[in-house]
Measured scan of single mutants.
Amino acid sequence: VIAMPSVRKYAREKGVDIRLVQGTGKNGRVLKEDIDAFLAGGA
């Protein structure tokens, strides 16, 4: 999974398994917005 360390930390704090999140950034990078969208109700 491609993600910046700050995004990985954010996901950990929110209790999200970053491997389950679909990245929308360049080359499938997971963004902070992707974590929020995942929490809001889905992949």
Rank of each mutant, 00 (worst) to 15 (best):
A40Y: 11
T24N: 05
S6V: 08
D34N: 06
A43E: 13
I18K: 00
L31T: 13
V30P: 02
L31H: 07
L20A: 10
V16M: 03
Q22D: 08
E13R: 13
A37S: 11
V16W: 01
R19G: 09
E13K: 13
V30Y: 01
A11V: 01
S6A: 13
Y10G: 01
S6P: 07
T24M: 05
V7D: 03
I2W: 03
K32L: 11
K9R: 14
S6Y: 12
V21K: 00
I18G: 01
K14C: 08
R19T: 12
A3T: 07
G15N: 10
F38K: 04
A40G: 10
P5G: 11
Q22P: 12
L31M: 11
L31W: 05
G41P: 09
I35G: 00
I35K: 00
I18W: 07
G23H: 03
G28Y: 06
M4S: 15
V30H: 02
K14A: 08
A3E: 04
E33G: 13
V1P: 10
A43Y: 14
K32S: 06
L31V: 09
A11M: 01
G15E: 06
A37H: 11
V1L: 10
V21Q: 01
D34K: 00
K9E: 14
D34G: 00
D34A: 00
G23K: 03
G42P: 13
G25K: 03
I18H: 03
I35S: 00
V1Q: 09
V1S: 08
G25N: 02
K9I: 09
P5S: 13
V1I: 13
M4G: 15
K26D: 10
V1E: 07
R19P: 02
A37V: 10
L31N: 07
R12I: 15
L31S: 09
G15L: 06
F38E: 04
D17I: 05
G25Q: 03
D17S: 06
I2R: 07
G42N: 14
I2S: 09
A3D: 05
G15H: 08
R12K: 15
I35A: 00
R8D: 06
G28Q: 06
A37T: 12
K32C: 07
M4I: 11
F38L: 07
A43N: 14
L39M: 10
A43W: 14
R12A: 15
E13S: 13
G23F: 03
V7L: 05
R29V: 08
K14V: 10
L39K: 06
Q22Y: 11
V16E: 00
I2V: 11
V21H: 00
Y10D: 02
D36W: 04
A3C: 07
A43K: 14
A3H: 06
M4A: 15
G25V: 02
G41V: 13
E33H: 12
G23S: 04
D36C: 05
K9W: 11
G41S: 14
K14F: 07
V21M: 05
K32I: 12
N27M: 10
I2C: 08
A43F: 14
K9F: 08
F38G: 02
G15W: 05
N27R: 10
G25Y: 02
R29S: 11
A40L: 14
K14N: 11
R19N: 12
P5A: 15
G41T: 14
L39G: 04
K26V: 12
V16A: 04
R12V: 15
D34W: 01
I35E: 00
Q22S: 13
E33F: 09
I18L: 10
A3Y: 04
V30D: 00
P5E: 14
G23R: 03
T24I: 02
V7R: 01
V21C: 06
S6F: 09
K9N: 10
K14M: 14
R8W: 15
A11G: 03
K32Q: 08
G23T: 03
Y10R: 03
G25D: 03
K26F: 12
V16G: 00
A37R: 14
V7Y: 02
V21F: 03
G42F: 14
M4R: 15
R19K: 11
D17L: 06
S6K: 11
D17Y: 05
L39Q: 06
V21A: 03
R19S: 11
I35D: 00
V16S: 01
V7S: 03
A37G: 08
L31K: 08
G41C: 09
I35F: 00
E33P: 08
V16H: 01
I18Q: 01
L39I: 14
R19M: 10
K9Q: 12
I18F: 04
E13P: 01
Q22K: 15
D36M: 06
L20N: 10
A11F: 02
I35M: 01
L20E: 10
I35H: 00
E13H: 09
A3L: 04
V21I: 11
G23V: 03
V7T: 07
V30W: 02
P5W: 06
F38W: 12
V21S: 01
I2Q: 09
D34V: 00
S6Q: 10
F38Y: 15
E13Q: 14
K14R: 13
E13F: 11
K26T: 11
V7Q: 02
I35Y: 00
G41L: 14
K32W: 08
A40T: 11
A40Q: 13
L39T: 06
M4N: 15
I18T: 03
A37L: 11
V7A: 05
K26Y: 12
N27V: 05
V7K: 01
V21E: 00
G28D: 04
K32D: 04
Q22E: 10
A11I: 01
K32P: 05
A43R: 11
S6N: 11
D34L: 00
K26P: 15
F38Q: 04
A37Q: 10
D17V: 04
G41E: 12
T24D: 02
V30N: 00
R29E: 15
A3S: 08
I18E: 02
F38T: 04
L20H: 10
V21L: 07
E13W: 10
A3R: 05
E13I: 12
N27S: 09
K26E: 12
K9D: 15
D36N: 07
S6W: 14
V21G: 00
G25W: 02
I35P: 00
V7M: 04
R8V: 15
Y10Q: 02
D36S: 04
Q22M: 13
A3W: 03
G42S: 14
A3G: 05
E13D: 13
D36Q: 05
K26L: 13
A43Q: 14
F38R: 04
G42D: 12
V16K: 00
G41N: 15
R8K: 11
E33R: 15
G41M: 15
K9V: 08
V30I: 14
A37Y: 10
P5R: 15
G23L: 02
G23I: 02
G28A: 06
G23N: 03
A11E: 00
A43H: 14
Y10F: 04
G42K: 13
V1W: 04
G42R: 10
G25A: 05
G28P: 02
F38N: 03
V16Q: 01
R19D: 08
N27C: 10
T24P: 01
I18A: 02
V30A: 03
G42H: 14
K9S: 08
A37I: 09
D17H: 05
L31R: 10
K26A: 12
I2F: 05
V1D: 07
R12P: 01
K32T: 07
R12M: 15
D17Q: 05
L39H: 06
K32R: 13
G25E: 02
A3M: 05
G25R: 03
D34S: 02
A11Q: 01
R8L: 15
G41F: 14
A3I: 09
K14I: 06
T24V: 03
A40W: 11
M4H: 15
A11T: 01
P5M: 11
P5N: 12
Y10E: 02
R8H: 14
G41A: 14
G15P: 00
M4W: 15
I35L: 04
A40S: 12
A40D: 11
A43C: 09
G23D: 01
G23E: 02
A43G: 14
A40H: 11
P5Q: 12
I35Q: 00
G41Y: 13
V7C: 04
G15M: 08
G42M: 15
G41D: 13
V16L: 06
R8M: 14
V7G: 02
G42V: 15
D36H: 04
G15R: 08
E33N: 10
P5F: 07
V1F: 06
R12C: 09
G28K: 07
V30T: 05
I2E: 08
G23A: 07
A40V: 12
S6L: 09
V7F: 02
Q22A: 12
G23Q: 03
E13G: 08
E33W: 10
I2K: 08
M4D: 15
E33M: 12
D36L: 06
A3K: 05
P5I: 13
E13N: 11
L39W: 07
V16I: 10
T24Q: 04
A11Y: 02
D34Y: 01
A37W: 10
L20S: 09
